[in-house]
Design a protein around this nucleic acid. Structure first.
Length: 206
DNA sequence: TTCAGGATGTACT
DNA sequence: GTACATCCTGAAC
């Protein structure tokens, strides 16, 4: 079933771990694009210099981080790419989980078209191997931009669920196997002083 | 298979 | 003006 506000209204690191293996669904022109989440990072404004809203810093950009749990925060990075975050913890606590990687599940050809303008079958082995292993790639494949910033995950256009059957697809057997989670330091935040070392990056172990 | 360098716009100093 | 929660390309090995 679809994850609800109570799921997001919890400790951010716990949400980041619990999102692994679940399905991010984006409905585009009535068709569900689906990505199985395999890598996440936690950002916790009250203690985390890597968070845009560190120390409750509130600006027009960071406003969605203060919104209720289950809100989407999308920002532009390096002038070209977007990063997708799911807001957690009670309203007023600026915390979120960055979705950093995933695997194509529903309608992979549409994901490939959003990303490369051609079908999955036309991609090189290198392109397939690294298809969704970065936050910018995820957003591009799902056609997410700042137009979706501040949107809700509790509606029908963009949400996370735990079975592909929830969107009329079939969950492949390999997705039902148990997996272990590895934690490590986050990526691309060298400026964040002591927060550089916080082990708030989570992945499904290979 | 790895590596360096460039692309590119916005937020904030 | 500077830095940024990144990705792609092309060259070298």
């Amino acid at each position: 079933m679809k994850l609800d506000a109570a799921f997001y209204n919890r400790d951010t690191c716990q949400v980041a771990r619990d999102l692994l293996g679940r399905y991010l669904v984006r409905v585009q022109d009535g068709v569900p694009l689906v990505v199985r989440i395999t890598e996440t990072e936690a950002y916790i404004g009250r203690v985390d210099k890597a968070c845009h809203a560190y120390n409750y810093r509130r600006t027009p950009r960071t406003e969605p981080l203060f919104a209720p749990p289950g809100t989407v925060y999308i920002y532009l990075i390096y002038g070209m790419y977007h990063c997708l975050n799911l807001v957690t913890e009670p309203e007023g606590e600026p915390c979120a989980v960055l979705l950093r990687g995933g695997q194509a599940r529903g309608n992979p050809d549409l994901l490939a078209r959003n990303r490369y303008g051609k079908g999955m079958g036309q991609l090189s082995p290198y392109q397939r191997k690294h298809f969704l292993d970065g936050p910018g790639k995820l957003c591009r494949a799902l056609s997410l931009t700042r137009a979706e910033n501040g949107a809700s995950l509790l509606g029908d256009a963009l949400f996370v669920c735990d079975r592909l059957e929830d969107v009329g697809l079939v969950t492949p057997p390999e997705d039902l196997l148990p997996f272990s989670i590895t934690a490590g330091p986050r990526v691309g935040i060298d400026y964040a002083e002591e927060a550089v070392h916080f082990p708030w990056r989570y992945r499904i172990a290979p």
